[in-house]
Amino acid sequence: MNADQLTTIRRQFPVTKRMLYLDSAHQTPMPTSVREALEEFIAEGHQMAGPKPVWLRRVEQARARVAAFLNATSSEIAFTKNTSEGLNIAANAVPLQAGDNVVLIEGDHPNNAYAWLNMKRKGIEVRFAKLRDGEIANAQTFAPYIDERTKVVTLSHVSFHAGQVHDLASIGKLCKERGVYLVVDAMQSVGVIPIDVKALGVSVLAAGTHKGLLVPQGLGILYVADGLDELQPAYLAMSSMARPPSDYIARPDDLDVRKDAGRFEFGNVNLPDLHALSASLEMIEDVGVAAIQQHVTALGDCLIEHLDRLGVRLVGPRDRGQRNHIYVLGLPVETWATYFARNDVRVSPERGGIRVSFALFNSADDVDRFAEIVRNGLKEGSLAKFANMD
């Protein structure tokens, strides 16, 4: 991303003039083009009582765009409310029987864990693979936990609490060899890291859109690989059916569901956010996800250099390829969160300290400003006393 591009992008995010926003792993601020798309949708509903056929055509256009974004087909994309709904859809769709097991990473996002732990009531065993702090998960992480009754391996592509970028390619290869479904939480990676679901061997992918995809909460995307017809929806609506009745009278003897991912969509989708998603994808595609990844990783390089000079510990991985846009600093939340808020810096409290996360609109100047604020904080006795230094 060149300087002119970055300047243009930053104009889309007025938050950059109001505060130092380093919290996109929590949620991204709304760009102007997304706000305008939402306003246009509201105006159409207000002035024309909703041109629903037009809106539904746009939904399919958005579906095709999301599919291309993931190297999928439109038939493999469904829309949900959020990541958690998508993961629960997957947990209930996989044909699990009592005695089968599912393997997760210990300490991964709890909403993924709860989706599968809920299956324990059906006699499903949930196994937790252990990782050391900052370690990257790969095929070797999961292999010791997989046996003939393992049906699913599931994990986040990028860890929310230390920023590791896990090795999905090797995990996907292992799952294919063992005949195991790979279910991926891509909440922290979609829109920030290029994702090729085919190359990675993903069976099901779930993600919300309020982080790397720049859309307000309330919309999720669900990828279900074609051919996995044995994955069946736990809930049915008319939109799920292979032959929805034109007279709107349910046929008890015709309960065949669609063969595509649409069998997991239930009723009306989030039309406003889908309009917003089309606008945000246009911006992201203009820059390119690979360029966004390169940009945020370079910002991470700059941040790590500052942290080393300041003597502040980085909780997660340091090596390129193992990290991307999320960085956790060993600064105790109890003292530093208030300090950052006082200085108009938006960050998140995390397990190991303070989480800093970058997006396409952040700049090297942002990192330098942040480092200076940390430096000033370290001069304050009450803060320096508690800093987790190298």
Results as ranks from 00 to 15, higher is better:
167 D>T: 01
5 Q>W: 10
296 V>C: 06
265 E>P: 04
85 E>D: 14
386 F>L: 08
383 L>P: 00
154 T>G: 02
294 Q>M: 14
190 V>R: 01
74 S>G: 01
78 A>F: 05
67 A>W: 08
375 R>N: 15
318 R>D: 03
279 A>E: 09
310 L>D: 00
89 I>H: 05
111 N>D: 13
129 A>I: 01
48 M>C: 09
371 A>P: 12
285 E>V: 07
299 L>F: 14
285 E>P: 06
170 S>G: 03
369 R>C: 02
149 R>P: 04
356 V>K: 06
2 N>W: 04
347 V>H: 10
352 G>W: 04
178 R>S: 13
36 E>D: 08
291 A>Y: 09
286 D>C: 14
87 L>T: 02
284 I>F: 00
299 L>C: 03
124 I>N: 03
217 Q>H: 12
326 I>W: 04
286 D>W: 12
148 E>M: 10
244 P>I: 15
149 R>K: 13
101 N>T: 14
196 D>V: 03
274 L>W: 12
160 F>N: 06
71 N>G: 00
40 E>L: 03
116 W>L: 10
221 I>N: 02
39 E>L: 03
271 L>N: 05
56 L>E: 08
4 D>C: 09
333 V>K: 01
287 V>R: 02
80 T>Q: 04
194 P>N: 14
234 A>E: 12
221 I>E: 09
360 L>M: 12
65 R>D: 09
342 R>Y: 08
227 G>K: 01
61 Q>H: 06
178 R>I: 05
131 L>G: 06
238 M>R: 15
194 P>G: 11
101 N>D: 14
284 I>V: 08
243 R>N: 15
277 L>H: 13
20 L>H: 05
377 G>D: 00
310 L>N: 03
110 P>L: 06
325 H>R: 09
153 V>K: 01
86 G>P: 14
199 A>G: 10
8 T>Q: 11
293 Q>C: 09
43 A>Y: 11
319 D>Q: 11
68 A>Q: 11
6 L>H: 13
316 G>W: 01
232 Q>V: 11
379 K>H: 11
352 G>T: 05
294 Q>V: 11
141 T>A: 05
10 R>Q: 13
386 F>I: 00
167 D>R: 05
87 L>S: 06
197 V>H: 01
291 A>W: 01
378 L>P: 03
316 G>H: 03
353 G>E: 02
380 E>M: 12
325 H>M: 11
281 L>W: 09
38 L>G: 04
